[in-house]
Simulated assay, not measured.
Amino acid sequence: MAELLEQRSSISLQLIDALLEVFGEFNQLNIWSKVTKDDFTVKRFDLGNDSNLCCCQLTETAKSKLNFSSPKDCEGVVVKFLTFGDNGITDNGLSLADIVAVNTVLSINQISPKLLFANSKCYVHEYIKSRIYTFENDDNPEVVKCLARILAKFHSLDAPISNNAYKTSQKSYEDFFNRRKHIYGWGNTEATGQKYLKALENHPEIKEQYYDEFAKIDYHSEIVYVQNLKERLDSPIVFAHSDFNRGNRLVVKDSKDQLEKIYLIDFDATSMNNRGVDFGDYFSNYRHREDFANEGFPSDEDMALFLNEYREKCAQIFGTEFLDKKENSLEHMIDEAKIYTLGSYIGGTFFGLMWYQEAHDTGKGQYFLNVAKNQSRGYNRLKKRFIEDGTIPRILQMPK
Results as ranks from 00 to 15, higher is better:
Phe306Tyr: 14
Phe306Gln: 07
Phe306His: 07
Leu307Glu: 09
Leu307Gln: 09
Leu307His: 07
Leu307Tyr: 03
Asn308Lys: 14
Asn308Val: 06
Asn308Phe: 03
Glu309Phe: 02
Glu309Cys: 05
Tyr310Lys: 11
Tyr310Asp: 08
Arg311Met: 07
Arg311Asn: 07
Glu312Pro: 00
Glu312Met: 10
Glu312Gly: 01
Lys313Gly: 00
Lys313Gln: 15
Cys314Phe: 01
Cys314Pro: 00
Cys314Met: 15
Cys314Ala: 10
Cys314Gln: 14
Ala315Trp: 09
Ala315Asn: 13
Ala315Cys: 13
Gln316Lys: 13
Gln316Trp: 03
Gln316Asp: 14
Ile317Thr: 09
Ile317Asn: 02
Ile317Gln: 03
Phe318Gln: 10
Phe318Val: 11
Gly319Ala: 11
Thr320Met: 15
Thr320Arg: 15
Glu321Tyr: 07
Glu321Ile: 08
Glu321Ala: 13
Phe322Asn: 09
Phe322Ser: 09
Phe322Trp: 14
Phe322Arg: 13
Leu323Cys: 08
Asp324Ile: 10
Asp324Gly: 06
Lys325Cys: 02
Lys325Val: 09
Lys326Thr: 12
Lys326Arg: 14
Lys326Pro: 00
Lys326Met: 06
Glu327Ala: 07
Glu327Trp: 09
Glu327Tyr: 11
Glu327Arg: 15
Glu327Ser: 09
Asn328Val: 04
Asn328Ala: 04
Asn328Arg: 13
Ser329Gln: 05
Ser329Asp: 02
Ser329Ala: 03
Ser329Val: 03
Ser329Tyr: 03
Ser329Trp: 05
Leu330Thr: 10
Leu330Tyr: 02
Leu330Asn: 06
Glu331Ala: 14
Glu331Leu: 10
His332Trp: 13
His332Gln: 15
Met333Leu: 14
Met333Gly: 01
Ile334Asn: 01
Asp335Pro: 03
Asp335Gly: 04
Asp335Cys: 10
Asp335Ile: 04
Asp335Asn: 14
Glu336Tyr: 08
Ala337Gly: 08
Ala337Leu: 06
Ala337Val: 05
Lys338Trp: 00
Ile339Met: 05
Ile339Gly: 05
Tyr340Ile: 02
Tyr340Gln: 06
Tyr340Ser: 03
Thr341Arg: 08
Gly343Leu: 01
Gly343Cys: 01
Gly343Ser: 06
Gly343Val: 01
Gly343Trp: 00
Ser344Gln: 12
Ser344Leu: 04
